[in-house]
Design a protein around this nucleic acid. Structure first.
Length: 337
DNA sequence: AAACTGCGCAACCGCCTTTTC
DNA sequence: GGAAAAGGCGGTTGCGCAGTT
């Protein structure tokens, strides 16, 4: 049985809010409050709107002390740092920026800040990934999809952190790390990995047989736990490349794998895998002939490492005299942050 | 001047979590 | 304890506007 809709879709108005509707909603909430029930609210006011729509309108636009546009340099930094650390948790990021809404920050990130920071790097990486895919298997659109999937949030976050870290050694602009949120230990691990020599990095793989555990990871201790969400893709890949983490001795009871990796399996691997239930954990093990399918993913990161080491072809961020930082617009040149 | 294109943003959708009964 | 309702969130869509051809 499906879930009942929150309102009668046929009888609710959609689209932009009129000034009249805004006034009705604002006046009512200021007088009587929400009353603990958004769904019932529009009926009380006489608005033909879905309760969720009212909530959104209030939270994102009508409530007091909302700021729109004009993000400051400080806000840019906070958004950037938090995005690197926690990803697209817009509500959490918004909580650190008084007057800003998650929707606003999300829009700002997607339409402006991301382009400012990653700009041409992304295109460059896309080219690299295409190159890799072409070399391996020219007719594999599935692989292309997987590669492009890898180029999303995780890679953006990694690129951003590397940018910031490079700048950190030159500039006071981002040097106050006290302002930054603390990094997940595996996240730090990821960053460290990309500072390894290429040789070391590559030699980590593929000699390990890998057992992938769907158990979750405590972001503070790095230990397996059932109460935290799975680690992100880039963390997972880095763990695999860098420093395998043994989280349980139960591996001894399972055939084949010598080490247990803590990975969010559906985020990093796709395709069919043997799986088995062992000691309360579900293990996913790539079959031998599937290793080659995983390799392109790691090629992506290897390629990124190579690019990172020669980050000079079209920097989107640069240090300027006096310790300031400029974002470089791909078309119009430098612009102060 | 008209058509086209790209961008920014408000709003919607659907899924997941939390609360209530 | 379980089902339903409501809240919350992130991704996506579509409209309006400005700039370009």
């Amino acid at each position: 049985m499906g879930r009942a809709p929150c309102c009668d879709k046929a009888n609710v108005k959609k689209g932009p809010w009129s000034p009249d509707e805004d006034t009705k909603l604002k006046d009512y909430i200021e007088k009587y409050g929400i009353g603990g029930n958004w769904i019932a609210l529009p009926q009380k006011i006489g608005l033909k709107r879905c309760g969720k729509s009212c909530r959104l309108r209030w939270l994102n636009y009508l409530r007091p002390n909302i700021k729109h546009g004009g993000f400051s340099e400080e806000e840019d930094k906070i958004i950037c740092s938090l995005y690197i650390s926690i990803g697209s948790r817009w509500s959490i990021i918004a909580a650190q920026l008084p007057g800003r809404t998650d929707n606003d920050i999300k829009n700002y990130w997607n339409t402006r800040l991301k382009k400012k920071l990653l700009g041409r790097r992304k295109q460059s990486n896309a080219r690299s990934m295409g190159y890799i895919a072409d070399n391996r298997d020219a007719n594999s659109s599935e692989d292309s999809d997987r590669l492009s999937a890898l180029s999303n949030s995780a890679i953006e976050r990694l690129q951003l952190h590397l940018q910031l870290q490079r700048m950190n050694s030159h500039s006071s602009f981002y040097s106050n790390t006290a302002l930054w949120p603390s990094m997940h230990s595996l996240h730090e691990n990821m960053v460290n990995t990309f500072q390894l020599s290429d040789e070391n990095l590559w030699n980590c793989w593929p000699d390990h047989q890998v057992q992938i555990d769907t158990a979750n990871i405590d972001p503070h201790s790095g230990n397996a736990s059932s109460s935290y969400e799975p680690v992100m893709t880039a963390d997972s890949i880095t763990s695999l490349l860098h420093e395998p983490t043994k989280i349980s001795d139960s591996a001894d009871n399972s055939p084949g794998p010598q080490e247990i990796m803590s990975l969010g399996v559906e985020q990093i691997l796709c395709g069919d895998y043997n799986d088995s239930q062992t000691a309360g954990h579900k293990y996913f093990m790539p079959q031998e002939n599937q290793y080659h399918q995983m390799m392109p993913d790691f090629h992506c990161f290897r390629r990124m490492l190579e690019e990172t080491n020669s980050w000079d072809d079209s920097p989107s961020l640069d240090i300027v005299e006096g310790g300031g930082v400029m974002f470089q617009d791909s078309e119009t040149g430098y612009r102060n942050l």
